[in-house]
Design a protein around this nucleic acid. Structure first.
Lengths: 214, 214
DNA sequence: TATCTTCTGGAATAGTCGTTCTAGTTTTTG
DNA sequence: CAAAAACTAGAACGACTATTCCAGAAGATA
């Protein structure tokens, strides 16, 4: 039922169909597929399309020109990859359980992902419990950026946290600042930072769903 | 260059193409168009397609089956209809100047629209200056809902505001409550409310773009 | 009234399209 | 090794498709 059990050529065929539909707005004909993949015979193309259909990747409308449909529509949204709660280990869903769909007009959707915020550690920056934060992966950032920082501890899975990042050169340390006056910032000597910490990405957008009156 | 200068039949043809592409994932053939619109001749269909092309609504790839493309891709996002600032007249863009694209998995996109928030009147509900609020149009709401309320004043364009709605039966009035302790709620006697006010819709989601460090 | 644009139907054509068949090669499996 | 499965090429067929030409009707224009 998935791409893994398709052969090399069938994978390339499937990719071509997806890209063709994205750029042309319609599925390709069997002959166009053959031309692209250097397949001499249309019967040959038909054979592999039948295989792709049998494996559940596409469906076809008999006799219709360009009668190819993708069974799973292309994932255009931003995958929700897990839950982030300050200080606790990041709960990563290996497979995106859902996705939020924010248009490419506003945000680069390439490589970005979303996390669900737990807790009130960034409440004074108006990031609430339950909000989705859209993360653009990057390993560096500027002072004041809201970032996902991961503490790599030996022998344990790293714990991650959502904080504002400040590099304090005068003290030779990094400060991870929550936006909650009840919570204390985390101060990390630069040497420890370099050894044990890692920036995973930066918050580029926030999305909140208002279910009912709070 | 627009739908207005197309004739009735051409408008129906254009609509059919849009709907067909949405449901089938490919453009229709000339014959399928003719069948749907009760046009006997394929030459006749070609004539109107040529007209639609001349008017800039579609483009065609000669000789290719289903060779129709929509020039302006279908607006799938939520249109940003204006700016809302507490108490000031709603700045409505008659034509959506932009759109944010939030997937239908999360929100009904049908009929919903977005407004850009100006000011800090809802800051304690963590709705900030510059945030997009997604509005689901409805004329009634429940206590505690965050709504767009419009004050219809005679001889002037109505002013609108973003507030929490409370019907206070014991005082026979409506209270529009800002989420900012520096601002006072608006108290409106029920009779005045019924005569001069109108609920335009309810906030169902919030979207914020983080440009840089604040 | 005469003229132009828009709209409609029918027929024909050249090429495109999905599908099927035969026949062969290569790779995998038992 | 032998059998099965997967892959490849070529050709051919009937249906489908876009396009063009002809001819006429309806309505607006001037």
């Amino acid at each position: 039922m998935s791409l893994e059990q398709a052969s090399e050529i069938q994978r390339r065929m499937y990719d071509f169909i997806v890209n063709y539909m994205k750029s042309e707005g319609m599925p390709p004909t069997n002959r166009e597929i053959g031309r692209e993949l250097n397949i001499a015979s249309t019967g040959h193309v038909d054979y592999h399309l039948t295989m792709l259909e049998k494996k559940g990747l596409i469906s076809r409308q008999a006799k219709k020109s360009r009668g190819i449909k993708l069974t799973k529509q292309v994932q255009e949204g931003i995958p929700v990859m897990g839950i982030i709660a300050a200080g606790e280990p990041l709960d990563i869903f290996s497979d995106a359980s859902s996705s939020i769909n924010i248009g490419s007009d506003m945000i680069e959707t390439e490589n970005t992902y979303a996390l669900v915020v737990r807790g009130r550690s960034m409440i004074e920056d108006h990031i609430c419990d339950g909000d989705y934060v859209v993360i653009k992966p990057q390993s560096t950032c500027q002072n004041g950026d809201i970032v996902v920082a991961v503490h790599m501890q030996e022998g344990a899975s790293g714990s991650s946290t959502l904080k504002r990042f400040f590099q304090e050169k005068e003290h030779n340390r990094v400060r991870l600042q929550p936006a909650n006056s009840e919570l204390d910032p985390i101060m990390i000597p630069k040497s420890v930072w370099d050894r044990e910490w890692q920036i995973q990405g930066k918050v580029v957008a926030i999305f909140r769903q208002c279910i009912a009156a709070a």
